[in-house]
Simulated scan of single mutants.
Amino acid sequence: MRRGWGVDARGRSAWRRGWLPAALALLVGVLLTGHALLPNRIGRLGSLLETFLPWLGAAVPVLLLPALLRRSVAALLALALPVTAWLGLFGAALLPGDPGDGSDGGITVVQHNVSDTNPDPAGTAGALARVRADLVGIQELTAPAMSAYAAVLGRDYPYRSVHGTVGLWSRHPLLDDRPLDIRPAGFGPDWNRGLRATARMPGGDVAVYVAHLPSVRFGLPDGFGTARRDESAGLLARAIDAEPLATVILLGDLNSTVHDRGLAPVRELLPSTAPAFPFSWPAALPVARIDQVMARSVTVADLWTLPATGSDHLPIAARLGR
């Protein structure tokens, strides 16, 4: 029989029992703090871990229960490592933010993969327009749905750029818009999922990129199949690196989370991005945010999800400021 937090029936003190939950807690803490050191050579396990990195925090309450049941001081102290690491990575996302209404002179943007099987493109376009953003970036546009998006968004967004399956709607003039070639090797000329345009904003010209990186797959023998996505991210980074305008905004379904090393070439060039929260995919039960707003020379001050549309992604909106 346990004797409170003292010696148990087997003569073990609170410091000497509960080593298994203590070891597991330390392992979780090490993965959180050292995830970048996990090699990607075997099944791209590093990218897989980083995609779902916030969920490692769920191990804390799971391990807290046996630590308390076993009255283990060692396990409780070990839990301090994952708690501290998780808060360091994601704690800022728990603080309340103010989306704002545009009155502060900042830029409001919306990013949404609308899904090429969306049954209600007009309703989706209306939901995006209600945000009253300055810029709206869209992926998975289809020819049959294009007229619905053009009709609804065109009421408030007189300027647009559409190339392939990606589009940009703007309240401000768009200049020098062109397709952006981010095709991995072996992809045909009909795969066009990137564009670049100059938005003539009240505060100055802004280079706006809209991109949809290749999807990833999980299975044998490749494991977490991110090679084509990573190659496309490298091409996107190369274009951004050559961008002459100082201010850059990227709106995209990058099929990558902010911590995924596959996005590192882009993240290094566009250092301002929101934390991993809130999640945007899948819309029915979001477990990760693979839709991103990233920027250079302006700060992503806040990011939030919008109500579900007919897509398998949730739309996201963000406020950017100097």
Rank of each mutant, 00 (worst) to 15 (best):
residue 175 L to V: 10
residue 69 L to A: 11
residue 29 G to L: 09
residue 133 A to N: 05
residue 235 L to A: 09
residue 299 T to Y: 02
residue 30 V to M: 08
residue 6 G to I: 11
residue 50 E to V: 01
residue 166 V to D: 08
residue 96 P to R: 07
residue 51 T to M: 00
residue 31 L to F: 07
residue 40 N to S: 13
residue 64 L to K: 04
residue 59 A to V: 09
residue 130 R to H: 04
residue 276 A to W: 04
residue 188 G to N: 14
residue 149 Y to D: 03
residue 256 S to L: 05
residue 229 R to E: 04
residue 201 M to L: 14
residue 83 V to W: 01
residue 190 D to I: 02
residue 157 Y to R: 14
residue 182 I to V: 14
residue 99 P to D: 00
residue 20 L to I: 14
residue 188 G to A: 13
residue 26 L to Y: 05
residue 77 L to D: 08
residue 284 A to P: 00
residue 25 A to N: 03
residue 177 D to K: 09
residue 11 G to M: 12
residue 304 W to C: 03
residue 114 V to K: 02
residue 76 L to R: 03
residue 200 R to D: 07
residue 60 V to N: 01
residue 181 D to K: 07
residue 281 W to S: 09
residue 160 R to N: 13
residue 258 V to M: 07
residue 90 F to I: 08
residue 212 H to G: 00
residue 63 L to C: 02
residue 170 S to N: 11
residue 39 P to K: 02
residue 310 G to S: 09
residue 90 F to Q: 05
residue 296 R to P: 04
residue 156 D to I: 07
residue 274 A to W: 08
residue 17 R to G: 12
residue 283 A to G: 10
residue 115 S to I: 05
residue 155 R to M: 07
residue 173 P to V: 10
residue 239 A to K: 11
residue 164 G to A: 11
residue 205 D to Q: 06
residue 122 A to Y: 09
residue 171 R to G: 10
residue 78 A to P: 03
residue 217 R to G: 05
residue 205 D to A: 15
residue 16 R to E: 15
residue 142 T to L: 04
residue 312 D to L: 11
residue 89 L to F: 04
residue 115 S to M: 05
residue 211 A to D: 03
residue 143 A to R: 12
residue 27 L to F: 11
residue 12 R to C: 12
residue 41 R to M: 02
residue 200 R to Q: 14
residue 171 R to F: 08
residue 82 P to S: 10
residue 116 D to S: 12
residue 260 D to G: 01
residue 17 R to C: 10
residue 99 P to N: 01
residue 19 W to N: 06
residue 158 P to I: 11
residue 125 A to C: 11
residue 77 L to I: 13
residue 49 L to Q: 01
residue 88 G to V: 09
residue 117 T to S: 06
residue 208 V to K: 08
residue 200 R to V: 15
residue 246 A to L: 14
residue 2 R to I: 12
residue 117 T to D: 07
residue 252 G to Q: 12
residue 133 A to Q: 07
residue 151 A to F: 11
residue 19 W to R: 14
residue 223 G to C: 06
residue 273 T to Y: 11
residue 154 G to T: 11
residue 165 T to C: 01
residue 187 F to P: 00
residue 208 V to G: 09
residue 66 P to E: 04
residue 71 R to H: 04
residue 146 M to A: 13
residue 86 W to M: 07
residue 257 T to S: 10
residue 312 D to N: 15
residue 289 R to D: 01
residue 74 A to K: 05
residue 142 T to Y: 03
residue 101 D to K: 04
residue 22 A to K: 06
residue 158 P to L: 09
residue 116 D to W: 11
residue 308 A to H: 07
residue 41 R to K: 01
residue 230 D to N: 15
residue 275 P to Q: 13
residue 122 A to M: 07
residue 263 L to C: 06
residue 254 L to E: 08
residue 139 Q to L: 02
residue 121 P to Y: 12
residue 308 A to F: 06
residue 167 G to E: 07
residue 124 T to G: 08
residue 53 L to Y: 00
residue 163 H to L: 05
residue 199 A to H: 02
residue 193 R to H: 08
residue 225 G to V: 00
residue 260 D to S: 10
residue 110 V to A: 01
residue 20 L to V: 15
residue 103 S to F: 00
residue 85 A to N: 05
residue 79 L to F: 04
residue 134 D to T: 07
residue 209 Y to A: 02
residue 22 A to F: 10
residue 11 G to L: 10
residue 62 V to N: 00
residue 242 A to S: 14
residue 23 A to G: 15
residue 266 V to D: 01
residue 171 R to D: 02
residue 203 G to F: 04
residue 164 G to M: 13
residue 228 R to V: 12
residue 275 P to I: 06
residue 39 P to M: 07
